[in-house]
Amino acid sequence: LPHTAVCLVCGEAGKEDTVEEEEGKFNLMLMECSICNEIIHPGCLKIKESEGVVNDELPNCWECPKC
């Protein structure tokens, strides 16, 4: 993702460097949905019932829970 990318919900950049544990890092890193192209911190999504499908081949790419 470009350095200028920010979260659609909170308007902040990736914050994964501020935590140690892997789950915390994931919730604070910016992810781009391969379907709707929205860039968001997974932790900013209010959807709890399902998780997005992470694409292991492309960094910061997933199918968000909304899609």
Rank of each mutant, 00 (worst) to 15 (best):
C61W: 07
A13V: 13
M29P: 06
L45T: 09
C33L: 01
T4M: 00
T18F: 09
C36F: 00
H41Q: 00
C7F: 01
N60E: 07
G52M: 06
N27A: 13
L28S: 13
K66A: 04
D17C: 12
D17L: 04
K15G: 07
V19S: 08
E16A: 04
N37R: 14
L8D: 02
E57V: 08
E12N: 04
K15R: 04
C33T: 01
E32M: 14
C33M: 02
D56R: 14
L1H: 07
I47G: 12
D56T: 13
H3I: 15
L58R: 13
L28E: 13
I39G: 08
L1M: 13
E63R: 11
S34G: 09
E20T: 08
H41L: 00
E38Y: 02
E12G: 13
E20F: 05
F26L: 05
E20N: 13
V53A: 12
K25P: 01
G43S: 04
I35Q: 08
V19H: 06
N60L: 05
G11W: 03
V19G: 07
N37H: 13
V9G: 06
E16W: 02
C64I: 01
E23P: 05
E57D: 13
T18S: 09
L45F: 05
C61I: 05
G11E: 07
N55W: 04
G24M: 15
E20K: 14
V54R: 12
D17I: 13
C44H: 07
T4K: 00
S50K: 11
K15T: 07
K46E: 14
P42C: 04
S50D: 13
E49D: 07
E21I: 02
L30P: 04
L58Q: 09
E22G: 11
L30G: 07
S50R: 09
L30M: 04
K66M: 04
A13M: 15
T4N: 07
P65A: 08
L45Y: 05
E38H: 02
E16V: 06
P42R: 08
I39Q: 15
C44K: 01
T4A: 00
P42H: 12
L58M: 14
F26Y: 06
N60W: 07
N60Q: 08
L28W: 12
C36D: 03
E38T: 02
I35V: 12
C44L: 00
C10I: 00
P2C: 15
P42L: 05
C36H: 00
S50Y: 15
E16S: 07
L1Q: 03
K48Y: 12
I47N: 05
C10S: 05
C44P: 01
W62S: 03
C33N: 03
E38L: 06
N27M: 13
G52D: 09
P2G: 15
L8N: 05
G11N: 04
C10Q: 03
L30N: 08
I47M: 14
P2V: 15
N37D: 11
E21S: 15
G24Q: 09
N60K: 07
G14A: 04
L1R: 07
K15A: 03
N37V: 00
E16K: 07
C10V: 00
E21D: 11
C64S: 01
E21Q: 05
G43E: 07
G14Q: 11
G14L: 03
K48Q: 14
K46A: 11
H3D: 14
I39H: 15
E38K: 07
D17G: 13
C10K: 09
H3V: 15
H41T: 01
